[in-house]
Write a protein that binds this DNA or RNA. Sequence first.
DNA 1: TATGAATGAGCATTCATTCAT
DNA 2: GATGAATGAATGCTCATTCAT
Lengths: 214, 214, 214, 214
Amino acid sequence: MSRRRAGVAGRSEFRRAVSDAEKSQRRQVILAAAKQVFSSGDFHAATMADIARAAGVSYGTLYWYFDSKDELFDALMDEQEAALRHSIDSALKDESVTDVESALQSSVRAVFDFFDADREASKLLFRDATAISERFTRHLLTIFDRFLGDLEYAVSDAQRKGMVRDAPPRVVAYAAASLIGQLAYRRLSTDDGLSSAEAAEFVVSLLLDGLRPR
Amino acid sequence: MSRRRAGVAGRSEFRRAVSDAEKSQRRQVILAAAKQVFSSGDFHAATMADIARAAGVSYGTLYWYFDSKDELFDALMDEQEAALRHSIDSALKDESVTDVESALQSSVRAVFDFFDADREASKLLFRDATAISERFTRHLLTIFDRFLGDLEYAVSDAQRKGMVRDAPPRVVAYAAASLIGQLAYRRLSTDDGLSSAEAAEFVVSLLLDGLRPR
Amino acid sequence: MSRRRAGVAGRSEFRRAVSDAEKSQRRQVILAAAKQVFSSGDFHAATMADIARAAGVSYGTLYWYFDSKDELFDALMDEQEAALRHSIDSALKDESVTDVESALQSSVRAVFDFFDADREASKLLFRDATAISERFTRHLLTIFDRFLGDLEYAVSDAQRKGMVRDAPPRVVAYAAASLIGQLAYRRLSTDDGLSSAEAAEFVVSLLLDGLRPR
Amino acid sequence: MSRRRAGVAGRSEFRRAVSDAEKSQRRQVILAAAKQVFSSGDFHAATMADIARAAGVSYGTLYWYFDSKDELFDALMDEQEAALRHSIDSALKDESVTDVESALQSSVRAVFDFFDADREASKLLFRDATAISERFTRHLLTIFDRFLGDLEYAVSDAQRKGMVRDAPPRVVAYAAASLIGQLAYRRLSTDDGLSSAEAAEFVVSLLLDGLRPR
DNA sequence: TATGAATGAGCATTCATTCAT
DNA sequence: GATGAATGAATGCTCATTCAT
């Protein structure tokens, strides 16, 4: 955000009726409205008119901030990804994270917490974007792939440390990501009676030790 | 509701311009065309005109066999589910299936084989229907739920036999279904170098014994 | 109706699976179905499929008996007109008809009775046909004009006999026809508590003596 | 419901791409075009494309001003009714109206003049709306009923004043309305050689004194 | 004769995007 | 910067009519 507003009043930018801060804020308002509209129904059902109405701006204004519906959707998705990443990163910085297993558990719990707290986000990342069009499928896959890359790296690392048995790291990472994602999604519609910590523990124990009784 | 009801019930059917076999066959042609069109893009992108063109029939003919785009899509989804079920059921009747573990492995392999052989089906069952509309999301969930129910039953059974440790059967079933489904879907876009048998073995070993080296 | 059926059985018309009488009867069945369908809703809402269904025949059969929907409608209208005419003619042959006034009264009553007894007919003649298309409007006007001609002749005659004051006969006839027709139509939706005879008497007294108290 | 509600209520209206006057004017242009198109054919024959073309606006613009074809038609009918009412009300305010008889005569003449001057209006009010659909039939009947109510009130009043003999006021009103309406309509297609004043006089004399010579 | 499957032009409506003000 | 009126291509669905069997 620019600080130019802090400068001398009456500067030469008199042609700009709205400050950068206000612009940025309005952009956020639109994104928030879009998030709400997109997440309640399918992508096609959400019209630009709906979004404008929800945001309290006119049709035309939408196009001042975003070049198209596609771009608006892309921006929204990027924002959600960043928020999820931020959640996970924060969790990993916690002092309770001491080894691979506790790191995995913290991450999974962060994912669960994130979607528990923001159901709209989950609809966007899990449901709406999945089949809307080639374009959004690709965007979603890109996001998923980035997480997958991180996980794959972590799996390889764990294998080096002897915590995970020998298996193609990418397949393992994919399996883990699927499990975590689907269960996070499931939490939204079904109440297992499990807290996010308990659910995370289950996932980790399933991944590490399987279902067979010892 | 089909238009065919327009015919006169109770009237003799001593003559018919087109035999039942021909009608049924043409219905299949339309479904096949719809499958192809729906699976290469989302529900909205697939127009009735596209489907008619792909099927080599006229626009109106579509509406002789199906009352609406929705109904056509529903019929298609039902057909795909039935085919997948048939695959799994056949696999379970194989003589090599002797216990819970081999049953699980055979089923998973059947799923992998099914989608390996029919990529369009996978797009329909995994991708397209998910975000189309409330209605189709519900249809898809119903299908998924049916498989889930079967799996849950199997899990409970395995728990009784001491093959699976104590855990909420439905959550376990959901985890297993997610894993199997997502990996089946992944096979289509990525070549792991794993045969369906090898992949199935990996899934089963992951589910039963986890990733931790013994 | 042809009498050929009365001839020797086994005649050379063996290619005709259905006798003339049966054909004629089926035609009537179709017309009756069309009458019902047309009179319950507007012309455009009534589809050929509806009529076929109501008649218990197939689409194609309709076109065996009538060349088009328009022609079917025309035939139906002609039939209704003939029936109404027949009613009036019968009434005029009654022995109670002795002069112009009693003739008028009998006619009006016949009209009222006709529509009282056949509400579907009234919908066809008064409502449905009125605005369907240029074509049907013209047909309707033709029918109305024929009645108008008869009335005009009667008015002129009455004027010659000194029963009706001097005024353009056609305008008078039109006024009378409008009054009779509209009141006949009104009887269908509103119950005045007037019998057809009483209502006819009111119309005649209004036409002849007006509303002003003597 | 109009799309205009899509705008943001409560937001300042300090600027407007198009003035209210321009909007209102364009709405009138569309209504005028619709009147012309609807009155030259039935409701179904008049397509939105026809109306757009006649109005010189694009297809979508129609929907900016009216939410549907139905709503457009309703608005048109309401406008016509208001105009006719205005005509009659003006006539009744004329100083030549001194008693019931002159009031009746002025009203009838106003009706004749109105339709003489606007043949499209007459087609809408007398013909087109009648058979379009349940919905429009109802709209038309409502309009007719309002006039009927006014007339009935006038008839009762005249009866109290001894100007009209004893008879059910509603039936009398219906008869009068029918006569006036039908003759107004007739004037459009046939030239009697009667001015609106002469025709009105005939109608009033017929209604009050009947056809029988004194 | 009768059937009903097949045809395809035609219609109301939606909605992303543009642009004059 | 902001507005909202205007645009018009695109879509699902209907239905009178034809015709092979």
